[in-house]
Every structure is written in C-alpha cells, then in structure tokens.
Computed example of a mutant assay.
Amino acid sequence: MQASMVLIFLCFIPFYANAGVYKWVDANGQTHFGDRPPAKAASSEVAVKAAPASVDAVARERHLKMTEFLEQLQEERKARQAADTQVEERAAKRAEVCRKLQARLKFLASVSTFYNLNDQGERVFVNEAENARIRADFRQKVKRTCGNE
C-alpha cells in the first residue's frame, strides 16, 4: 500500500516541478508574480527559462584548489594517525617490559642468595656483597627502563 502511494506521488512530481509562473496587475497598478493565478484578477502565464549552469574558470580553479587542500589534509591526518599508532604500540611494549621487570624485581627480593654455574654444572653461591650488587644493578635497570623502581 505504501509503495503504491509513493509511486503515485512520484508520478506527480514532474507536474509540480513544471508549475507555471503567473503575472497580474492589481487594482493599484502594481505588477505581481506568483505560482498560482489570483482568483479576482486576470493573469497570464509567464515562461521562465532557467539560466544554464555554467562554471567559470575561477570557480573551477577554486574547486580544484579546495579538492587538493582536502586531499592534503586527509594525507596529513593519515600520517598523524600512523604516528599515533606507533607511539601507542611502543608505549604498550614498554609497559609490558616494565611489568615483567617489576615482577622479576619482586622475585629477586624474595631470593636469599644467588649462584653461578661452574664448568661442571655445579652451583657456586656468591657472597653477600655480590648479592647486593646484583640487586642494585637490577633496580637500576628497572629505573632506567621504567622510570621508577
């Protein structure tokens, strides 16, 4: 039902679009124009010719410059978005590295002493001074990488 109403409406659009322009003179001698003829005055239909759409060279040049400008803005926006994406990716990687370093630092605090393996694969425990140096070096690494301990 709605489709048929729309179809009927679309059929009448050309008649409405081509509605005439009427000209009449009132009792005071003033000339009037309208899209409907007046009820109490004699009128005549006026043929109105639409001016052809012409684009001059200046308008064409302005349009071309505007298009180039918009394309340049779009390219700059894409470049900024790519740079922002890279910054975000680097920040995410750094945050992940820092998270792992913080976890390792916490683990190192729970270890009582460290050892090295010798050529035979046996554990050789380090002294307290070496333990303190290993912890301090690792804290410095975390501080350099993450900016805090």
Rank of each mutant, 00 (worst) to 15 (best):
K100T: 01
C98F: 01
N28S: 13
H32I: 06
A91S: 02
E76L: 11
Y16L: 14
L105N: 15
V46M: 13
T85R: 10
E128R: 11
A41D: 12
F15C: 11
Q30G: 02
R139A: 13
G147A: 04
N18P: 00
R80E: 13
V142M: 07
V58E: 15
S112H: 08
E128A: 13
A19V: 11
K93V: 02
R62S: 10
D119T: 10
D84A: 12
E89F: 00
A27M: 04
A103C: 04
R139Y: 01
A95R: 03
F9L: 06
E89V: 05
P38L: 08
F69V: 00
R36H: 12
N18W: 07
L73T: 01
R135K: 14
K65G: 00
F114M: 07
H32E: 05
E128V: 10
A47M: 10
A91L: 01
R144P: 00
T145D: 03
N148C: 09
N28C: 05
F12R: 06
R62W: 04
S54M: 13
G34L: 10
R94K: 14
G29E: 06
A27V: 08
V58S: 14
L101N: 00
A59L: 10
M1T: 09
T85Y: 06
R133K: 11
M5P: 00
A27I: 07
R77K: 14
G147I: 03
V142K: 08
R36T: 13
N18I: 01
R104A: 04
Y22N: 04
C146F: 03
R77M: 08
K78F: 07
E96K: 01
P52I: 06
V21D: 04
V126M: 07
Y22V: 02
Y16C: 08
F9Q: 05
A109D: 11
R77G: 05
